[in-house]
């Protein structure tokens, strides 16, 4: 947890994976959920960008440390499930989240990026699930979130080959939403979040994002019901605000 730093740019929160140069994830519980949530609420954040410090996003889990822990520690499964909870929490945030991918984005790093709503990568980015090269597999929600995003066939190709994907292929496969020159990626990410949220009140952002999250979390008819409820809440709030 000492490897995460947080910054503010107006109402956008910047979360940095801060373990350069490769920004390896040393433990599954890499981030404190309560701390993050408190920070988002306290600062009335309208969006979050997650990125790596320096040249890389994150080259993934620290294999030696993870490996040793799994072998020696029977409670590792518990630790893994807490790590998974962090990504699930991230996915269910009710403000837009964006992964800004520069340099290496491997394994657990890619799994973090996949739990965001949006992914922007710089033209020097390298993306991969290399686990199968070591006779392992993504263990941090990657085998679930990648197929959901790009389908079964392309996911199998990426996870089984373990090969590095360049930005244009990542774009063509639908893993990332935009590719930008290295120097422009930062600004583009900030501008994109601004474009989505700057003119919208926080409660509207929360309602819309919550409803969109439901697309991935609920069955269709439940999600439609929730959408109708959220819509009516916004209508009542708007009426109330206009009266007072």
């Amino acid at each position: 947890m000492q490897y995460i730093t947080k910054k503010l740019i107006e109402t956008t929160g910047i979360i940095e994976i801060n373990n350069p140069p490769r920004n390896l994830i040393d433990e599954p519980e890499f981030l404190d959920i309560d701390d993050l949530n408190g920070w988002i609420i306290k600062n009335s954040l309208k969006g979050v960008i997650i990125r790596g410090v320096g040249r890389n996003f994150s080259a993934g889990a620290n294999k030696e440390k993870f490996y040793e822990k799994v072998i020696t520690n029977k409670t590792m499964e518990g630790e893994f499930s807490r790590g998974r909870k962090i990504l699930n929490f991230f996915e269910s945030l009710t403000i837009p989240t964006l992964a800004l991918i520069q340099g290496a984005c491997f394994g657990a790093g890619l799994e973090i990026a996949l739990s965001c709503h949006l992914r922007i990568c710089s033209d020097n980015a390298l993306i991969a699930f290399p686990e199968s090269n070591y006779d392992l597999m993504p263990g941090f929600t990657g085998t679930y979130r990648l197929p959901r995003l790009i389908g079964k066939g392309k996911s199998l190709e990426i996870i089984l080959s373990g090969e590095i994907i360049d930005p244009l292929k990542a774009l063509a496969y639908g893993i990332v939403d935009y590719v930008k020159p290295k120097k422009e990626a930062d600004d583009f990410a900030l501008e994109l979040l601004k474009k989505l949220t700057a003119n919208r009140p926080l409660h509207v952002i929360n309602a819309i994002t919550k409803s969109i999250n439901n697309y991935f979390l609920l069955d269709r008819d439940s999600a439609l019901k929730e959408e109708a409820k959220l819509f009516c809440q916004l209508v009542r709030q708007k009426y109330h605000d206009e009266k007072t």
Binding site: L118, R200, P201, N214, Y215, E227, L234
Partner: peptide
């Protein structure tokens, strides 16, 4: 200051993907 209420936040994601829908 409102939102789609008749399936827009679900079906648009389905058809054009999350990024474009958002």
């Amino acid at each position: 200051d409102l939102m789609p209420g008749c399936g827009g936040t679900q079906r648009l994601v389905d058809i054009v993907g999350l990024s474009k829908a958002m």
